[in-house]
Design a protein around this nucleic acid. Structure first.
Lengths: 150, 150
DNA sequence: GATGCTATTGCAACTTGTTGCAGTAAGGCG
DNA sequence: CGCCTTACTGCAACAAGTTGCAATAGCATC
């Protein structure tokens, strides 16, 4: 896994901020610490909560603004879960989308094969370059549609 | 277009409610009137606003609950826009998904060809039956990715 | 180490929804 | 036509974000 790479990336965050004339503050440090412990994805509310448990003074607006800044630096990407709630994908190296089964509620990642095929489909049809990691695609998983009640 | 069909559908709403032991109230009538004037999709907030302009007493919770009821009857379907906000698709006969260009902000419908291809891609990869109408797929349109700045 | 510019913070108010609850009113029935 | 059951409604409080603004505090400089 890219765990080693990731830690390098996180250790460089401060420098990345400075490069852009942005400031390194205790609040941002907290957010980055929380994120560095995340593998995959996390909701906005969850980030706020974890920051709060590390520093009770944490304010939601600051967290969301820091998340925006980190997204601009390319360290996280935001998307939306099946319910439309914000979701942040950490470790941009491993871009991936999600599938959500509306029937049984399970979730899983979109495999590279499917991703390729889907990207190709959109590209051929409209020349559209989709970003599958932005949304959670909803539908029905294989077992649920097999036992499709109605 | 299926305008004629639609008006028939809306005129049957009351009966559909009764069939299920649900009640027909002035508030629901207002929501249905608002929806019957919609072609395509509308956000939740927008429905509330329009209902309010027709009946200033309108309460958001009632509107959202009515929308849920209508969804159960299959008269509308909800999804989420690129920003995760709720969006209701009216006229279920014309199921369709949306593409949103993160670069220029334009939106358009996913054509039947692309839809077919995408559905096939997911089905083949995981046996997953996606519901493209549930989310707005984000990416970059042909012209934006052509003039891709960076 | 003090200074000044300005990126950030935290507050407060607002947006979009959601939910529990007690009171209200559809509408089937006698 | 009045009664009764229980599906709705409206309220109020909450959850997840977002935004404007005045005060604070990084940090580059002297």
């Amino acid at each position: 896994m890219s765990t080693a790479q990731q830690s390098i990336a996180w250790s460089q965050v401060r420098a990345r901020f400075h490069e852009r004339g942005l400031r390194w503050t205790p609040q941002r440090r907290t957010v980055v610490e929380v994120l560095s412990a995340v593998n995959g994805h996390i909701t906005g509310a969850e980030v706020v909560e974890r920051c709060r448990s590390q520093d009770s003074e944490t304010t939601p607006s600051t967290v969301y603004r820091t998340l925006d800044a980190l997204e601009e630096l390319g360290l996280v990407r935001h998307g939306h879960g099946a319910d439309g709630r914000e979701e942040f994908h950490v470790s941009p190296g491993g871009e991936h989308g999600h599938l959500y089964c509306a029937s049984c509620g399970s979730r899983w990642e979109i495999g590279p094969d499917a991703a390729q095929a889907v990207l190709a489909a959109f590209r051929e049809a409209d020349g559209f370059q989709v970003d599958l990691s932005h949304v959670t695609v909803v539908g029905r998983c294989a077992s649920c549609s097999a036992s499709a009640g109605e």
